[in-house]
Simulated scan of single mutants.
Amino acid sequence: MPDVSKMKKPDVKLVLLGDMNVGKTSLLHRYMERKFKETVSTVGGAFFLKQWGPYNISIWDTAGREQFHGLGSMYCRGAAAVILTYDVTNWQSLAELEERFLSLTDTANHDCIFAIVGNKADLTDSKAQLSQASDKPSEDQTECEDERTEPQELPACPTPPASPTSLSGVMLHKQVAHEDAIALYGRILRYKGLDEKSSLPAEKMCFETSAKTGYNVDALFETLFDLVLPSILRKRNENQESPTVDLEDYRGVNRKKGKSACC
């Protein structure tokens, strides 16, 4: 674990929410480490620190298991963006976003950006099976911090498709259509009391990804990084207008004054 005293202070926070086994941790490893990892369920939470140009962005991975559910609102506190993640082969994982996880975002920033992400697209879409890991050169990696800690009633999700997921074939049945994610995005905006016409369009904020092949993973994170830049700049301006006092420096100045004082 890196020296805490050398850690850079994050300018803004992103949070991944979603049920267990949808691939949140794998998405994060794919983006940060440029490789796919078979991971175990996250306990509590974990975060990575990503340098994006001159800015530092903390990306929080949260546990999807029921016993850690109460920690979600704590991790979402002050978040500038939330990535609501589901499994495209599992209808219930989309329904859980609305039923269990959306209310946790009440502690996020009032202008929080939401992305709806369907992971495991390689299981249902042949174009997502092609690896994109070599499309871009690996960036200099910022050292990752692996600290583990772990309303309003909305219309219900539509009835899930009748045909079950097939585990026998190479390609699995896709239970969640892109239109279902777009519909959920609209309900999220209404839950937050936001005007759909003045908000970011659903087509831009609903992604299908594959942590295994890297499909659309860079596009997801880099789109969000660009969108949270106004939040970063506003926060920095507020800090400049209301500077904080470093007590250690203040004490050091006082000690020097005391030593130079006349008897």
Score class of each variant (00 low, 15 high):
Ala177Lys: 08
Met20His: 04
Asp249Trp: 15
Leu229Asp: 02
Lys204Met: 08
Leu71Gly: 05
Thr105Arg: 01
Lys37Cys: 07
Tyr250Met: 15
Lys13Tyr: 04
Val245Tyr: 06
Gly169Ser: 12
Gly252Val: 04
His110Asn: 04
Asp11Lys: 02
Phe48Gly: 01
Leu172Pro: 05
Pro2Ser: 12
Asn90Leu: 13
Asp125Gln: 10
Ala95Asp: 12
Thr107Ala: 03
Ser231Met: 05
Ser210Val: 13
Leu224Ala: 03
Pro201Ile: 07
Tyr250Thr: 15
Gly214Glu: 03
Lys212Phe: 15
Asn90Ala: 10
Lys256Ile: 10
Ala81Gln: 02
Asp111Lys: 12
Val43Gln: 12
Ile182His: 00
Arg251Gln: 15
Val15Trp: 14
Asp140Leu: 09
Leu229Pro: 01
Tyr215Ser: 06
Leu184Ile: 10
Leu49Pro: 00
Ser168His: 13
Glu98Arg: 13
Met171His: 05
Pro10Asp: 13
Glu248Cys: 13
Ile83Glu: 00
Val217Trp: 00
Glu33Asn: 06
Pro160Glu: 06
Ser260Cys: 05
Met74Gln: 13
Ala181Arg: 00
Ser73Phe: 02
Leu184Trp: 05
Lys204Cys: 01
Leu28Phe: 14
Val40Glu: 14
Val117Pro: 00
Ser163Cys: 07
Glu38Ser: 10
Leu28Pro: 05
Gly118Thr: 10
Asp180Pro: 00
Trp52Glu: 02
Ile188Thr: 11
Ala115Cys: 12
Ser199Cys: 09
Val176Ser: 04
Leu184Lys: 02
Leu130Lys: 08
Gly258Lys: 14
Leu172Cys: 12
Val176Glu: 01
Gly72Ser: 10
Leu189Gly: 01
Leu220Lys: 03
Leu27Thr: 12
Phe101Trp: 15
Lys212Met: 13
Asp218Val: 12
Leu229Cys: 05
Thr107Trp: 02
Leu200Gly: 01
Asp226Ala: 05
Asp125Arg: 07
Val117Ala: 02
Glu196Arg: 04
Leu17Val: 15
Lys6Ser: 09
Tyr250Gln: 14
Asn21Tyr: 12
Asn239Tyr: 08
Gly214Cys: 01
Arg148Cys: 10
Asp61Met: 06
Ser138Pro: 07
Met171Ala: 08
Lys174Pro: 01
Phe47Cys: 13
Ile232Ser: 02
Ile116Ala: 02
Pro151Leu: 11
Thr124His: 02
Gln141Trp: 09
Lys192Thr: 06
Ser210Thr: 12
Arg236Gln: 15
Glu203Gln: 06
Val12Arg: 00
His178Thr: 05
Leu172Phe: 08
Val228Asn: 03
Gly258Glu: 14
Asn254Asp: 09
Phe225Arg: 05
Tyr31Ala: 03
Cys112Asn: 09
Asp3Phe: 04
Ser93Gln: 08
Leu17Glu: 05
Cys263Tyr: 11
Arg30Val: 01
Leu104Met: 15
Thr89Pro: 03
Trp60Pro: 08
Gln92Tyr: 12
Gly169Tyr: 11
Ser198Asp: 11
Asp87Arg: 00
Cys76Trp: 05
Pro160Val: 09
